[in-house]
């Protein structure tokens, strides 16, 4: 049981880090699509399509196993897993934020400009806050998926919850009890996350 808890702690750590990185990157890329520069939009679109349309497992394997030989970049399991999870989740977040940004009524932008705000201020104080509110439920779903997807990182030797569950059950052959316990951990973690999200959503509500 303490071993499982140890795994759960790393699951939380990698999920939280990937969440933060994924949100920041997703928002930044979504904002980039709002700039009137075609190459930039194409670049973001290409990134989103590549990371959304390939299995996360392939991305994890690619970063961990292929990068060292390809470009000499050798990231340890945690960093490899974090990079893959962040890039994968950011691809979804980009689309969610983009949809949010585009859902802000154009009148809001016109009003911002009419009240003398510059383009930066218009984004910062008028469009983005509203877009975040609109995007929030979809983002929440994506964050829940992220916590569960973090179990895939177990394949590259990262000692998170799923890895620990495998490790224990492969040695004591009590798969039902061990995976059951791991499932309860995931449910507990995700229920906590949902509560935090619900709380944030209430606070964001105008």
């Amino acid at each position: 049981m303490p071993y499982l808890t140890e795994g759960a702690v790393l699951t939380v750590a990698i999920s939280a880090a990937a969440m933060a990185a994924g949100l920041i990157l997703g928002l930044a890329l979504a904002l980039a699509t709002q700039v009137h520069a075609r190459p930039l939009r194409w670049a973001v679109a290409a990134y989103v399509e590549i990371f959304r349309n390939t299995p996360l497992l392939i991305q994890i394997f690619f970063i961990y196993f292929a990068m060292p030989n390809l470009i000499g970049l050798r990231l340890p399991p945690f960093m490899s897993g974090l990079t893959a999870l962040a890039l994968y989740t950011a691809a979804y977040n980009t689309e969610i934020f983009r949809a949010g940004l585009e859902a802000v009524p154009f009148g809001q932008r016109e009003a911002a400009r009419a009240s003398g705000l510059g383009p930066w201020q218009e984004m910062r104080f008028v469009v983005v806050p509203q877009a975040v509110r609109i995007s929030f439920p979809a983002l929440g779903n994506n964050l829940v998926s992220l916590v569960k997807n973090s179990s895939l990182v177990s394949v590259i030797g990262m000692v998170e919850l799923m890895f620990v569950a495998n490790d224990i059950s492969f040695n004591n052959f009590r798969s039902f009890e061990v995976y059951g316990a791991a499932a309860v951990y995931y449910i507990a973690l995700i229920l906590l996350l949902s509560r935090a999200l619900a709380w944030t959503e209430r606070r964001l509500a105008v």
């Binding site: 961990y64 196993f65 050798r74 340890p76 394949v155 590259i156 030797g157």
Partner: peptide, 11 residues
């Protein structure tokens, strides 16, 4: 296969 890849990649 994963262990061999990890060995070849220097992990």
């Amino acid at each position: 296969t994963e262990a061999v890849l990890a060995l070849k990649a220097g992990h």
